[in-house]
Nucleic acid binder design. Sequence first.
DNA 1: TCGCAAAATGAACACTGTTCGTTATTGTAG
DNA 2: CTACAATAACGAACAGTGTTCATTTTGCGA
Lengths: 223, 223
Amino acid sequence: MPMEARKSGRPRVAVLSRDLILETALKLLDERGEQGAGIRDIARALEVRPSALYNHISGQDDIIAGIRELVSDRIDVSGFGNLSWDDAVRRWAWSYRSAFAAHPPTIAIMVVTPLAPKSRTSQMYEAVCAGLIEAGWPEHMVVNLIVSLECFILGAALDHVAPDNMMDPGEDETAPNFVAAYTARASGLPSPEARPTDIVFEMGLEAMLAGLTATFQQLKGES
Amino acid sequence: MPMEARKSGRPRVAVLSRDLILETALKLLDERGEQGAGIRDIARALEVRPSALYNHISGQDDIIAGIRELVSDRIDVSGFGNLSWDDAVRRWAWSYRSAFAAHPPTIAIMVVTPLAPKSRTSQMYEAVCAGLIEAGWPEHMVVNLIVSLECFILGAALDHVAPDNMMDPGEDETAPNFVAAYTARASGLPSPEARPTDIVFEMGLEAMLAGLTATFQQLKGES
DNA sequence: TCGCAAAATGAACACTGTTCGTTATTGTAG
DNA sequence: CTACAATAACGAACAGTGTTCATTTTGCGA
C-alpha cells in the first residue's frame, strides 16, 4: 500500500484490472448509492487517476454493464429443474428483486443495454428458459413470460428502494378515498416492521402466477 | 420574437413562466429524448440564458417533477365508475404505460419523489382508489393493489422504450434453450409489425388481472 | 538486448447543473 | 408622483462529470 505518489508509466505490479474496477464500483454502489460511485470515486478508492481506468474499461456504460453481470450472479435459478415451475419462479423473482433493488442504476441500464452473448445474464436466461420449457410451456411463449415477469420485478425493485412514505397523501381533503385507503393500508400491515414493498411484491407476484397458472392449465387442457 | 440580443434586467413583457418551461422540457423530451432536454437545451429553445430558468424553477429535479405532473394528466382514469373495475384497470394501465414510455427519465424520478398533496398525480390516485373501493375492494388492500400494478406498468414502460432486439442471444451455443425460445417468439408474433413489448404487456396485465379477479371473487365469496 | 505494447500519471477538454452579481423593469406603498 | 423593494433577465464563474490524448515507465516476446 504505497504512501507516496505513484510514478507515471507502467507499474511493476499491475494495479488495476477490469474485475477489480467492477467489484469496487459495485461495493461503492452498495455503500453510497449512485452518487458515490462515479469514475472519480472509483479511481479514488483504488488510488489511481481517473484516466487509468480507461485502460481496462471503455467507459461508464461499460462499468454499469459489468455491474449488471455481477448482480445477475446473485439471481437464484436453482429452483428450475428442481421445483415446480411456479415455485422456481417465486424463488427466482424474489432473489431477482433483491439483487437489483440494491443497485437501482443498473435497472435503467439493463433495460436498455443489449445482451452480450455468453454473458452471465445470458446464462441466467438459459436456466429459466430450460426450466419453463421442460415444465411444458410452449417455446414461443417463454420469452414473453420471462419479460413480463421482469417488468414487474424491475418495477418492484425500484419501488423497494423508494422511501416507504413517498406516496403519503397527508391530509389532502381533495382526495378522501386515497387518504382513507392509504391510512387503512398502514393498519393492515402484518407487523410494525413489515415493509409495504414486500406486501406489494407478494401480492403482485402471486396474482401474476395465479393468472399464468390458469393459462398453463388451459394450454394443458387443450393438448 | 427579438432578433437581437436581449438586454440584461427585467423584461417589459414576461419571457418565461414555470408552465412554459415545463411544456418546453416535455416537448424536447418527446422530440429528442433525455439527452436533448437538459437545462441548456431548454434555455436555448426559449432563447434565454440557462440561469434565467432558476427564477421559475428550483432546479432540474423540479423540472422533472413538473413533467411528471404533465404526464400524469395523460393517464386515463375515465373507466373507473363507468366500467367494471377490471376493464377500468385495463384502460388505466395501457394509458399509464403509454404516457410514461414516452418519457423514461420521469419513471426513475417518480418512484423516488414524494407525492405533493393536491397534485394532479394525487388526483389520479384518488380516482383509481374511489373506483376500486366502490367496486368492492377492501380499503386496506387498494393501495397495495395499485402499487403492484404500477410496478408492472413502469417496468413495462421501460421495456417499451428499449430496442426490440436487445435481448437477442444471437448464435450462443451455450444457451440453446434461450436461443430456441427467442427464435420461436419471433415466429409467434401475430403480425410483422407487432411489437413484442405490446404482447408482453398484454400477457402480464391479463395474468395479473386474472389473479386479482380470483382474489376478488374469493373475498366476495367470504362475505 | 531491443522494440513494441501496455498501463500508469498528467494535462486538458467539453459538457453539466448551479450560484451569485449586475442591470433593468415592475409593483406597491406613502 | 416618487422611492424603494421585488422581480426577472443577462453575465461570469464555479464545482463537478466523463473522457481524450500526450508522456513516462515497465513488461514481454522475439
